[in-house]
């Protein structure tokens, strides 16, 4: 019980010492301990933590639609490939509409105007997707995902038309090649963008 009382009294004395409410009869041991335990932090520590507290060196992520257009402009190569693939799709779509019977005749199959027309509409939609990569870099991923598989499939399919329908074979092989080039151009453009972003940070 006496130790409890002493502990409480000591606690009060420590409070007095730490808050500076001490007289000439203050406990020298507590005064020494309080002074020795409370030096001023070194300036180097404060500078070090201040440096940590600066805003992160990584720039804030800006949504694509809020970025300036020039930052989102695709490379010339990517634009050219995307536009060429778009043109090839549109060319095929127009061919289906205006020369469907000629295509059918060369392939040795009956002409179905209805199927050819709806196929042309689908090809036009694919052409719009491909063209998106020529407008904004941030859209190129969607173009690659939607158009490259189609273009590659058409290219492989076109190999079977060699010796049977030369014009169709040429168009499909061109589409397949452009599909491959679109993947390459997108990857190349993305790699350059990431490298430039890293260089801007250092």
């Amino acid at each position: 019980m006496s130790e409890d009382f002493d502990a409480d009294a000591l606690d009060t004395s420590i409070d007095d010492v730490l808050t500076g409410r001490v007289g000439s009869d203050a406990d020298p041991g507590l005064l020494w301990l309080a002074a020795a335990s409370r030096p001023t932090p070194p300036a180097s520590l404060l500078a070090r933590i201040d440096a940590q507290m600066q805003p992160a060196a990584v720039p804030e992520r800006i949504p694509a639609r809020q970025r300036p257009f020039r930052d989102d402009r695709p490379s010339l190569f990517l634009s050219a490939v995307a536009a060429a693939l778009s043109f090839a799709f549109v060319f095929q779509a127009m061919g289906n509409i205006v020369a469907g019977d000629w295509i059918a005749e060369n392939l040795g199959e009956p002409h179905g105007p209805h199927a050819y027309f709806e196929g042309a509409l689908a090809m036009t939609a694919a052409a719009v997707c491909a063209l998106a990569a020529a407008v904004r870099r941030s859209w190129a991923g969607v173009s690659v995902l939607s158009c490259s598989p189609l273009a590659l499939s058409l290219g492989i399919h076109g190999l079977g038309e060699i010796g049977q329908f030369a014009a169709g074979a040429i168009l499909h092989v061109i589409e397949g090649t452009l599909g491959l080039l679109l993947i390459g151009a997108w990857w190349w453009d993305r790699r350059d963008t990431l490298r430039r972003a890293r260089e801007e940070l250092t």
């Binding site: 130790e3 409890d4 002493d6 409480d8 000591l10 606690d11 420590i14 041991g29 301990l33």
Partner: peptide
């Protein structure tokens, strides 16, 4: 109370 006792004993040992 136990915290005050730890302080009391600690400072006693320091003395």
């Amino acid at each position: 109370s136990a915290a005050r006792m730890l302080l009391h004993r600690g400072i006693g040992r320091l003395r």
